[in-house]
Design a protein around this nucleic acid. Structure first.
Lengths: 190, 190, 190, 190
DNA sequence: TCCTAAGCGAGACGGTACGTCAAGTCTTCTG
DNA sequence: CAGAAGACTTGACGTACCGTCTCGCTTAGGA
C-alpha cells in the first residue's frame, strides 16, 4: 500500500530520452544528464531501469519516439506497393534525426542483443509481416513464383534499410528503384 | 635523433585489442584496461591513437584481427561462385567470436560514422568490387541482363550479412540458397 | 478518537537502539537500518524523534540502556564510599559494551552540545549531587576542610571517568586508589 | 618513477580542513565539499587519506591547526607554574573555534580509538611529560610527597580540560584555582 | 663518445559519471 | 488518525576511467 510509482516521473524520463535521441546524442548521453533533463532524481531512474538501453527501449515501445513511420498501403499493384513503401523509407532516412534514431537503435542492438531482438520484433516485425502477406497475396494472384521465399525477400528490404542507415547513406530513388525491380524480377512468375 | 616509436608497444596494444574483441568486450573495454593488458603505459596509447575505435581500425588493417575471411574464388559458374562465398560468410558468422567482432564493428560505425566509412571501405570495399567484377564478367558472357545494377546487388549481399550479424542470426544454408538464387533470378538474362 | 501512539512501536525502536549500542554501532547506525531492525516504518521514527541522538537519549532515560550502574552507598567512611563508587566505575568500564556506550554518549555530546548537556544533567547530575552531599556530610563531621570545593572535586571524578572511557583506558585499581587518596589528601582537614 | 605526489594539493587539503574546523564544521564536512574547498579532485583525497579523521589527524600533526597552545614555563614555583599553564588552557577554551577544534578531536577519538590514541600521544603526551617532570622536580626539592603519583595528577588536569571542552564549559579562573590548589594540597609534603 | 631529443613506464592530477546508500518528505492504503 | 510500505528528491559516498601532466630512465642518431 505504498505510494504508487509516479507516472509523471516515468513520462518525463522517456520524453527526455526522446529529446536526446532527436539530437543524435544517445551514445554521449549520461544517466545523470538525463535525470537532470527530465527533472527527476537519478535514483528514480536507477530504481526503474537497469540501463540506458532499457530506457530507450521503453521510450520506443511506449511510442514516445517516432518509430516505424512509413505507411503500408495495399493496392492492386505489388510493384507499386513495394515501391511506395521503400521510397517512404528512403525519404524518412533523409531527416538527420531519423537517421540518428536508427543509428542509436543499431548501436543498442549491437550492445544488447536481447533488447535488440525485442526492438526488432516490435518495429521490424509488423513491417516484415506486411511484406510477407503482400507477397503471398501476389502469389495467390499468380504474379509471383510459387517457391519464392517471402520472408527472405522481406528481410532483404529491412537489411538494406538498416545498412543504409548504419552507413549514413540514405536510400536514394535510383537505389530504391534498382532494388525493388531486381527483387521483383527475381520472384516474378516465369 | 630521438628514440623511434616502439614497434613492440604498438603490436602489444593491437594484440590486446584483438584479445578483447575475441571476448566480445569491445564496448566495455577501457583504455586503461587495454594499456594494462598490453603492458604499456596509458600515455603511449594516447600518444599514437585518438580513440578506441582507431585502435580497432588499425588492429584490423594490420591483420591482427581475422577480418574478412571468406575467400573470393572465380570459376566459370557465377551461381557457384556467389554461393561459395556467401556460404563461407554464413559459416564465418557461426563462430561466436566472429559475430562479436562484426557487432563491434557495427557499434563503432554507429557511434562514429566517419571511421565506420573508412572501415567499410577497407573491408567491404574489396568484396564489393569483387562481386561487381564477377557480375560484369557474367554480363560479358551474356549470363546477366545488360541493365542489372551490379553495385546494388553487391550491396544487398553485404547488407544481408551485416543485418544477420547485427541480429545475431547467422545466415543458414537455406537462407543463403534463397537469397543467392533469388538474386540470380532477378538478374538472369531473359 | 484518533489512534493513539503505538507503545509497541516506540519500545521496538528503543530496544533496537539498545541492541545497536551494545554492539558499539551507534555511529554507523542508520535510521533506515534502525527502522528495519525495529520492524517499524521509517516515518514512524521521524514522526516522534528529531534525530538519532534523541532516540539514544530516550532509550537511556527509559532505562532501555544500562546507564549509570555504580551504586552510591553511604557509610560512615568517606574514603571507603568514594573508593567503592569509583572502583565500581572502573569495573563497569571493563566491559567492552559499556565502554562503547560511554563513547557513543561522548560522541553525541561532542556533536550536539545541547543534547549532551541534557544527557549529562540526567546521568551525571545525580552522581555529582551525591558526591557533593557526601563531601558536605564529611565536612560537617569535620573530616574535610571548610573551604573545599565539593563541586570541583565531584567534577574531577567525572572528568577522569569520561577521559578514561574516551581513551579506552579503563580506570584500574591503582589509578583509582591514586586519585581517591590524592583527592582526599587535598581536602582533608589539616 | 612517476610524477611525485603534489605537495601543493596536500597542503591545500589540510588548509581546507583547518578552515572547516575553525568554523566548527567538522561533523558536517563532506569529503566532496572539502575537495571543492581545497580546489582539488575528490579522487586525490581518496588516493591519500582513508577518511576524514585521518585528514584531521594529519592536519594537526602537520601543525596546520593551532594545536597545543599553552606555553609550558618552568619557574621556581610549582603552584605558579601549574596555575599559569592551566589558566592558559582556560583562556584558550574561551575562543569558540578552539572549543570546536577540541570537540572535533574528541569526536574523532570517540569514533576511531586508534587515531585518537595517536592524536592524544602527539598533543597530550608532551604536556603530560612536562607536568610529570615539573612535579618530579618539585619532589626533588622536597615540596611534594615522595609517594605522589605524578602521572595521575597530570592525567587529572588533562581530563578536566577535555571534560570542560566536551561540555562546552570552559575552565574559569575560580575552577582553575580550585583544582590547582586542591591538587597541590593533595600532594604537598606533609 | 658523448649529447640530446623523443619514446616509454609509471602513475598523480583535475574531472565526469558511475551506481549505491541514506537522509528526510510525501503519498497511499489498512486497521 | 497511526502506522506499514515504499516512492520521491537530495546529496554524499567511494570507484572507475577519462585525457593531461610530469617524472626518471632508455635509446637512438648527429655532433
Amino acid at each position: 500500500m505504498p505510494r504508487p510509482r509516479s507516472e509523471h516521473a516515468r513520462r518525463s524520463v522517456l520524453a527526455a530520452m526522446r529529446r536526446a535521441i532527436a539530437e543524435g546524442a544517445f551514445e554521449s548521453l549520461s544517466i545523470e544528464g538525463l535525470a537532470a533533463d527530465a527533472g527527476v532524481a537519478k535514483q528514480t531512474i536507477y530504481r526503474w531501469w537497469p540501463n540506458k538501453a532499457a530506457i530507450l527501449g521503453e521510450a520506443m515501445l511506449d511510442g514516445e519516439i517516432p518509430g516505424n513511420p512509413p505507411a503500408l498501403a495495399v493496392t492492386a499493384d505489388l510493384a507499386a506497393d513495394l515501391h511506395a513503401w521503400f521510397d517512404a523509407v528512403g525519404s524518412y532516412q533523409l531527416r538527420e534525426e531519423n537517421l540518428a534514431l536508427a543509428r542509436a537503435l543499431i548501436a543498442v542492438t549491437a550492445a544488447d542483443p536481447a533488447l535488440g531482438a525485442a526492438l526488432n520484433e516490435r518495429f521490424a516485425g509488423p513491417v516484415l509481416d506486411w511484406i510477407v502477406r503482400r507477397i503471398d497475396l501476389a502469389r495467390t494472384a499468380g504474379e509471383v513464383r510459387a517457391d519464392a521465399d517471402a520472408a527472405a525477400i522481406a528481410d532483404q528490404f529491412l537489411a538494406m534499410a538498416s545498412y543504409a542507415a548504419l552507413l549514413g547513406r540514405p536510400l536514394g530513388p535510383e537505389r530504391v528503384e534498382s532494388i525493388v525491380s531486381g527483387v521483383l524480377w527475381g520472384i516474378a512468375a516465369r
